[in-house]
Design a protein around this nucleic acid. Structure first.
Lengths: 136, 136
DNA sequence: GTGAAAATGATTATCATTATCGTTATCACA
DNA sequence: TGTGATAACGATAATGATAATCATTTTCAC
């Protein structure tokens, strides 16, 4: 079945090659913001010849087209997710790396206010909450 | 004159070598969260033989001792600042890289609340506001 | 002063990501 | 349906920040 992301790729008029299709599908199949090599490994299950170079290229392309969001939760290892029209931030379990998405209008209003108080215009932000399960 | 950071280094009982002294001083001399090689360049002005390896080692050491905070505002290039007892976050000018520090209790309370609502304990956070001058 | 332990400098290794380049696939058009 | 221009691919090398290694030098307690 065609994944959401595949559909969006074809809507851009971009060549929907076998590799791009497989990579798009792989991202949808993996839970929770996969890393580049998780995506590569999943893609290899369908086509064992897909190159890591193609994965990097394709992810960058999808990101530039606004189809994917790239996160750098820790300095060395990007993670991707399908872009959604409504922005959100992340809670990140510092043991497992699992994430939970959230959105808080009140915080965002305060952020804008802080920028304005400093004579600046807020263009974007990054907010990550590092957490642990309550009983640990 | 001895910098704040030099004093703090000697208080740890750590050997206050010439290189550590120079690196500590360099950090204090540079405005606004210097990068590793900005610190290295500044240190070279005092001793043209200081190795980049020593700079990396020393910064990591100071950070582990809690004397410095390390920031990864962008994935590729850490920046350091003297640790202060009171935590703060940053506004970052996306053109120049200049930073402004801020602290907002209201936001922090909301962050804790969000973690708790999800059955999680907030351990830390990262919040960066990307900004531009108002008239641009 | 001496010797063990720590620190340094030079260099190499690592790791994620990007660039290169020769080959292959795709697509518009004949 | 064939063809040629162009885009995409795969393999691999290059890059850039940081970490590790190791031989040499410095430090400090005695």
């Amino acid at each position: 079945m065609e994944s959401r992301l595949e559909k969006r790729v074809s809507n851009t008029g971009l060549r929907l090659t076998a590799q791009r299709r497989i990579i798009a599908r792989a991202i949808c199949l993996i839970e929770d913001h996969p890393s580049v090599d998780e995506i590569h490994r999943k893609a290899l299950e369908t086509n064992p010849n897909i190159s890591i170079a193609t994965v990097y290229r394709t992810l960058r392309l999808f990101e530039e087209l606004g189809l994917l969001d790239k996160h750098e939760f820790n300095q060395s290892r990007a993670r991707y997710e399908e872009a959604t029209e409504n922005h959100h931030d992340h809670l990140i379990d510092i043991e497992t790396g699992k994430t939970i998405e959230f959105h808080d209008k009140e915080i965002e209003a305060l952020q804008k206010e802080i920028a304005n108080e400093n004579g600046l215009r807020l263009i974007g932000h990054r907010m990550e909450l590092y957490v642990r399960p309550l009983g640990s």
